[in-house]
């Protein structure tokens, strides 16, 4: 079922047009990766879908309703979005950051209920941060910090989570840690994930669907096997590569630009 979609979406910054007429729809309970060269508009697309940026034309639909007609907190109860490398004061304890995720469920003066507390517990448990609850953000490793942000977004109880480069700046161990967490949340809680990825091999390993963007347009859209081919990689990134299929997953070996 398509419950999240954008239709004829165009957007930009000031006079600069970045996204050109993009139409996409997302099925429930899947992991989708958006790939493409720098400046191709991946972040811009994610921001429009998460209403951080107002499109100049077109619409984003959630369960058949246009999100421009919904309130900020109503959207936030269904859509969680984490921008690329978010920033916070280093002295916030993990459990406080996670508790901020309950904000869309609260009125200005309402207090923290038992349900809120249980949800925060669950989010910290799901991300394996129970032991770190009293640690401060600045004391965490990069992977733990990224997990703390994901826990915050999970405490929102969204149906869909939009993530902009959740693994950038992480070493390979922490990259896997974050992606395996997303995979686990996807299978165990049915969380729909749309993420921007730079690593094509990790993107193909962890997502059922790859969307490739170039110059503000979607140029390829399909399963990993269909998108990750030597010709496609050359068309999109201008890099020569060899494709290796092993144990059911597909990987590219890059041979250079010359």
């Amino acid at each position: 079922m398509n419950f999240f979609a954008c239709e004829n979406l165009s957007a930009g910054y000031g006079r600069k047009e970045v996204l050109k007429n993009i139409t996409l729809s997302f099925e429930k309970e899947r992991i989708t990766s958006v790939i493409g060269p720098n400046g191709s508009g991946k972040s811009t697309l994610l921001k429009c879908m998460g209403r951080l940026l107002k499109p100049s034309a077109g619409c984003v639909y959630l369960d058949g309703r246009s999100i421009s007609a919904m309130t900020d907190s109503a959207i936030a109860r269904s859509v969680g979005i984490l921008p690329q490398s978010p920033n916070a004061p280093g002295d916030i304890p993990v459990h406080c950051l996670v508790a901020y995720g309950r904000n869309p469920h609260k009125k200005a003066l309402s207090s923290f209920t038992k349900e809120d507390r249980e949800t925060v517990e669950w989010a910290m448990h799901a991300t394996g941060l129970e032991d770190k609850r009293f640690m401060r953000l600045g004391q965490l490793s990069g992977g733990e910090r990224q997990r703390a942000w994901i826990a915050m977004a999970l405490a929102q109880r969204p149906q869909i989570l939009l993530l902009d480069e959740p693994t950038t700046y992480l070493d390979i161990h922490h990259q896997f840690e974050v992606l395996e967490l997303l995979e686990k949340l996807n299978t165990s809680c049915g969380l729909t994930v749309v993420m921007v990825m730079h690593d094509l091999n990790l993107a193909s390993k962890f997502s059922g669907r790859l969307i490739a963007m170039k110059e503000g347009q979607v140029v390829l859209d399909g399963c990993a096997k269909g998108v990750l081919t030597e010709e496609n990689i050359f068309d999109i990134f201008r890099v020569k590569s060899r494709i290796v299929d092993m144990d059911g997953s597909r990987a590219a070996m890059y041979m250079g630009v010359a």
Binding site: K47, G50, R51, L52, T71, D72, S73, A74, I75, A76, R77, V79, G80, I81, L82, P83, P86, N87, A88, P89, C96, L97, Y100, G101, N103, P104, A108, L109, M152, A153, Q156
Partner: peptide
Amino acid sequence: GIGARYLNILMLGDDVARGLGVS
């Protein structure tokens, strides 16, 4: 006093704050 909660969320950055449903 009422605003303190919103100030905390604003300190996470405008994008995160909007993502958390703050106008």
